[in-house]
Each structure stands twice: as structure tokens, then as C-alpha cells.
């Protein structure tokens, strides 16, 4: 093994442990309450996970949470950015989820027509 090979191996292996180190740029929080699940939140999440992997986006973590209080527009996800900005997307399906991964997480461009409201974190 030489330094170059070690570096390559490290880059490859880092994805396995990165989740344990925290501090990702994007955090996708999927609303997984009863109504979210009923409306297809699991499909949305699965699609997103596949899509994130396919595109090799490393700076993203996906979590699940309970209801956001937006039962009538489920499935809902919230994307939190390292800077503190949050965007909530509603009425999602697999296709829309793919688009959000490509645009928001891939290029850093919000998908305005799918977003609902807009909140700023206070801290």
C-alpha cells in the first residue's frame, strides 16, 4: 500500500462511518406519523434514499420524525440546511421526491412550486 492507495481507500470507506460523525450540509426530515405513512411517506423516503445514493450525494442525512401538523398535505418533508434555513415540501410522491433530490440537494436550488410556506430558524 502507498499513500495514494490509502487515501482512496479512506474516501471509499468514509461513507460507511460518515453518518456517525454528523455535521451534514443537508438534513432531510421525513414526516412519518400515521397520516404520513398512510399517504405514502415511506415510498417518498425510499425513492429519496435511492436517488441520493444514485447521485452520490454525500452531504445529506435522512431522518424520520412524527407529524409536522400538516396532515392534509402529507407526505411532507422538511429540508434543513447547515446555515439554518428550512424548506418544507408537501403533497409529495415518488416523482416529486426525485425532482427535489436532483434540484434542491443536488444543485442547491429550491423547488419553489412544491414548497409550502417558508420558515427561518431563529438561531
Amino acid at each position: 500500500m502507498n499513500l495514494e492507495e490509502l487515501k482512496k481507500l479512506k474516501e471509499k470507506a468514509q461513507r460507511q462511518v460518515a453518518l456517525r460523525e454528523g455535521n451534514k450540509k443537508y438534513r432531510v426530515v421525513v414526516s412519518m406519523g400515521t397520516s404520513g405513512i398512510a399517504a405514502g411517506a415511506r415510498d417518498v423516503m425510499k425513492t429519496m434514499l435511492d436517488e441520493i445514493e444514485k447521485r452520490g450525494l454525500d452531504d445529506v442525512e435522512v431522518r424520520v420524525t412524527g407529524e409536522h401538523g400538516l396532515e392534509d398535505v402529507e407526505p411532507v418533508i422538511r429540508i434543513e440546511e447547515a446555515g439554518g434555513e428550512e424548506t418544507t415540501y408537501a403533497r409529495l410522491d415518488a416523482e416529486k421526491a426525485k425532482k427535489i433530490v436532483a434540484e434542491h440537494l443536488g444543485k442547491g436550488k429550491k423547488v419553489e412550486n412544491l414548497a409550502v410556506g417558508k420558515q427561518k430558524k431563529t438561531e
Binding site: 502507498n2 499513500l3 490509502l6 481507500l9 479512506k10 471509499k12 470507506a13 468514509q14 460507511q16 462511518v17 460518515a18 456517525r20
Partner: peptide, 25 residues
């Protein structure tokens, strides 16, 4: 308590053997 001790790749991912590489070279 953070890495799988039986997997060298996880140690390497946490900068393992980087010190050795630097020292030797």
C-alpha cells in the same frame, strides 16, 4: 464504540494508518 473493530476500512475511514503513512514517507 464508534467503529467496527473487525473492519480495517472503518479504522482507515477515521484517518487510520494516515499517521503511519506520513511518518514513513
Amino acid at each position: 464504540g464508534l467503529i467496527d473493530a473487525e473492519n480495517i476500512e472503518e479504522y482507515i475511514a477515521r484517518d487510520g494508518y494516515a499517521a503511519l503513512g506520513t511518518v514513513l514517507t
